[in-house]
């Protein structure tokens, strides 16, 4: 953002670009607008329309249905665990990767990105193969009477897996750009690790941290693929909201499916608004997260 403003201002200010080819400019704007409307806005409007298609009462009944509420609770539960874990992991990994140099650093950076590249079904299957009834960890789990897959822990693990890169990926560039000068100064003045972290590092990265947590939450709430594999689809027990929507749809309960979808759509809008607020606040303080 800030960069483009400082780039070569011509005599006519930003007009210089327009004069180059006004038709191309219009065409590109119209194309991207059209694409956004057809691919995003229209379908979302239809979801909301379908949700209320048979009236407020049916909408409310679908949203307050026991299974919907249990699914919502489960989604919030798995999402919270995933976000808390990934915040801690993201901070640790970003700190380790930018503040120390060690052998295998490059490999670690690549590995953090793996969940972005890997298909969620594979993520689900790895957990089944590891913690399932035929998995190699099964005897250990039985020893402690633990159940991972086809139960809540499996859902949490799958969600953590797919959202793993969010926090670390956001923090690494910020920490790298900041450098270590201030922290070294703090250490020289006798500050301990936690004092340095909370007084020096955290204030600099806090917007990036909040921003990444918000994105991570959005992804965790909507996760379908990996969670579907480890869930077993036990209604009221291992059904998160996205899985519940699929079930409702498959049961010919179209309006109910869209009513529950509306919960997720509204959540996404809240999350996106929060993101914009964070972007605005961070820019005002000069710590542009984007």
């Amino acid at each position: 953002m800030a960069k483009s403003r400082t780039q070569a201002p011509s005599k006519h200010g930003r007009r210089g670009y327009r004069q180059e080819n006004p038709y191309l400019r219009r065409l590109l704007i119209i194309l991207s607008l059209l694409f956004t409307i057809l691919m995003l806005v229209l379908p979302l409007v239809i979801v909301i329309y379908q949700a209320f298609g048979t009236g407020w009462d049916r909408f409310w009944a679908a949203v307050t249905n026991t299974f919907t509420l249990k699914a919502l609770y489960l989604t919030i539960l798995t999402g919270s665990f995933a976000v808390i874990f990934n915040t801690l992991f993201g901070l640790t990994a970003a700190w380790a990767l930018t503040r120390y140099s060690f052998r295998g650093q490059g490999i670690l950076i690549t590995l953090i990105d793996l969940p972005f590249a890997i298909s969620p079904i594979i993520a689900g299957l790895i957990f089944i193969l590891t913690y399932g009834r035929l998995g190699w960890a099964k005897p250990i789990l039985d020893e402690f009477n633990l159940k991972i897959v086809f139960a809540t822990p499996g859902l949490v693990l799958a969600t953590i897996f797919v959202t793993l890169p969010f926090v670390a990926r956001e923090l690494i560039p910020v920490l790298t750009a900041r450098g270590t000068d201030e922290e070294q100064a703090a250490v020289l003045m006798g500050a301990g690790f936690f004092r340095v972290f909370f007084k020096v590092t955290l204030p600099h990265i806090r917007w990036a941290l909040i921003y990444s947590v918000i994105l991570c939450t959005a992804r965790a709430m909507g996760e379908f693929g990996a969670v579907s594999v480890v869930s077993g689809h036990l209604r009221g027990k291992t059904n998160t909201l996205p899985l519940h929507i699929e079930i409702l749809y498959n049961e010919h309960h179209y309006n109910e499916a869209f009513a529950v979808s509306a919960i997720l759509v509204v959540t996404s809008i809240v999350i996106l608004t929060a993101r914009s607020v964070v972007e605005y606040l961070s820019r005002r303080e000069g710590d542009d997260v984007r």
């Binding site: 035929l134 099964k138 897959v149 077993g232 689809h233």
Partner: peptide, 16 residues
């Protein structure tokens, strides 16, 4: 729990 029959059998074998 509902799904394709073969898939459901598989999930029970895997620990569902």
């Amino acid at each position: 729990s509902h799904g394709g029959s073969g898939k459901q059998a598989r999930s029970v074998i895997e620990g569902n």
